[in-house]
Design a protein around this nucleic acid. Structure first.
Lengths: 334, 334
DNA sequence: TACCGTAGGCGAAGCGCTTCGACACCGGCA
DNA sequence: TGCCGGTGTCGAAGCGCTTCGCCTACGGTA
């Protein structure tokens, strides 16, 4: 069929094993021999057969990525993440096998079938039904998100609690002491990756630590509810000067309504958010906030999971510290 | 390591080859024997080793998908397409290996390395530098788009010429005889997948056939150019009553400006477009148009390329006929 | 009754690669 | 001079699966 390692060996006048060692670098080979082999490889256009390699070495150089491919609000972020995983995987000379979120047996299939060396799972929920199957596989797995019971699985996520604290502290450092908070609907707090709960806690803690008052309001992100949430905040405390928005979908509506209702941003109200930088930046008033670094999370995920492939290192959970980008939607009180 | 076919054979009290034949169905096996084997498989949780299978059978049950993962305007459409490919591949019991567009040697790597059975390439340009390498691979390939020289490669795309004709005919059937057309900038006509050129031709042909006048205007999709394009059309012919927009990015701006400048849609001007249905539907005035069926294209692409895997059928180019969805942005003249 | 075709099963030869152990050769040391 | 430890190379044994050819039974036909 195509050119095999035996062809290369013959062409270079060495044995098959020598060619293999030249290619893998796992034994020292003298410079002249190595040169002959490399020349033969080039001349014949040799490419090792991935299946044969996988069979003999128990390594495939492929990682599985389970991603939510349904069209949704945050498609852009998902793409960024997927691209980040592919890029980073290539950096380690790995390819990426794409599985969809709803292919519940997908991980099991590719894992048990030894098609991949490791598995990255996006969008993990607090009580995720896939975890059990994942834990049984011999491939290391990394989860994006923080389930209640990670067991022996690694996790990466943004440190939402720190993000909540940082968001509030940014406001209190500017002197704001009467704060509003637009969060997620209760349903998200249950499911989700617990990020909502963690963020809430960070917000509350920091407000208390700074001696600031805090009015919170859930919001599903619709234009109506967003407007209503803003009004509810100011009804509860008309003197609010700082607002934290942890709801990508609502962000635009909240800002627009603040301005439209005679509360210009940042002149009357300072606004801080957590979101992908692109989302925060493209609002009518660009919004200062904590960036969700999709690509960085992707990189870290791949790094972590590949580190575990042949090391017997234990699982680990890593929370990335968010960084705040000032886009001018806040200003000192007074 | 894990359960092998030999374990299953032992457990079922048959030979290894018998187990293999039960699994593949390539030879008749008596019902009782088959049952024993299947029971053993279940009991042991046996999964064939993909690498071993690939080595022995020269089939991997994986297809490569080369997709543009950079964040762009049409991320949603790309995702739809990717999801469509994965779904359809699963339907044939295949998995999908994801390559990025800019990984120029990616296809060569996975192809020559026998990691995949077939290759799907998105976003092919008229003179695509990847074509040559793809043609050299032994795996069948299907291109999304229509390059100038497909050679032995298969292609799928929407029939943009038919779409152009249908768009115009929809207007002329309603009695419109003075038409405007907002197209792509010249640069896109050069690159791209020639779809712009093909659409242009369809539009011009149909206008001529119906004896309608046609004023065309290029547009890069920016708000400014979109407004300028509309004004240019009506400057050239103030009596235009029907407009064809073949520019996703411009569509919103064109519609908005028509309405804002006292030319309500559809009361004063009928508008027809070609775009993904979601885009047409979410405009201020939902726009009637020819749908770009991302998922259908994906399905057809997978069907075509897998059909060629072990058949020696020749390459083929398929142009999908677009269908028109009426969203109320057109009305009879008068 | 003798024969043949077929269904049902087995053995073994690869598929192309990695890797372990063996071996030859060389220079340095006692 | 003899021995020892590296260094560089080779041979061969798998890795787990598919598939070809072969063999046995058995039922049907002449």
């Amino acid at each position: 069929m195509s050119v095999t390692i035996a062809d290369v060996a013959r062409e270079a006048g060495v044995s098959v094993s020598t060619v293999s060692y030249v290619l893998s670098g796992k034994r020292t080979i003298s410079a002249p021999t190595r040169a002959r082999v490399e020349a033969a490889v080039d001349r014949l256009g040799y490419r090792p057969h991935a299946g044969a390699r996988a069979l003999a070495s128990a390594r495939t150089n492929v990682i599985a990525l389970m991603a939510p491919l349904r069209a949704g609000v945050d498609v852009g972020v998902i793409m960024q993440f997927v691209a980040g995983v592919v890029l980073r995987a290539r950096h380690y000379d790995h390819d990426v096998l794409l599985l969809t979120q709803d292919d519940v047996r997908g991980a099991e299939r590719v894992g048990a079938g030894s098609m991949v060396d490791a598995i990255v799972v996006m969008d993990v929920e607090t009580h995720d039904e896939r975890l059990e199957a994942l834990a049984r596989l011999r491939q290391p797995t990394v989860l994006i998100g923080l389930p209640e019971e990670p067991g022996t699985l690694s996790c990466v996520d943004l440190d939402f609690e720190a993000a909540g604290r940082a968001a509030v502290r940014h406001l209190t450092d500017l002197g704001h002491r009467r704060l509003g908070y637009v969060g997620h609907p209760g349903a998200v707090r249950e499911r989700g990756t617990s990020f909502a709960v963690r963020f809430d806690r960070g917000v509350a803690d920091a407000a208390q630590a700074a001696g600031a008052s805090l009015v919170a309001q859930d919001c599903d992100g619709s234009p109506e509810q967003s407007v209503a949430a803003v009004e509810a905040l100011f009804a509860a405390d008309p003197r609010i000067t700082g607002v934290v928005v942890h709801n990508e979908a609502a962000l635009g509506h909240v800002v627009t309504h603040l301005v439209a209702s005679g509360r210009p941003v940042p002149e009357a109200v300072s606004v801080v958010t957590v979101s992908p930088p692109e989302v925060a930046a493209r609002q009518a008033v660009p919004v200062t906030g904590l960036d969700i670094p999709a690509e960085r999370v992707a990189h870290v995920a791949v790094d972590m999971v590949l580190a575990r492939v042949d090391g017997d290192e234990p699982a680990e959970t890593r929370l990335l510290t968010p960084t705040l980008t000032d886009r001018g939607s806040t200003r000192p009180l007074g």
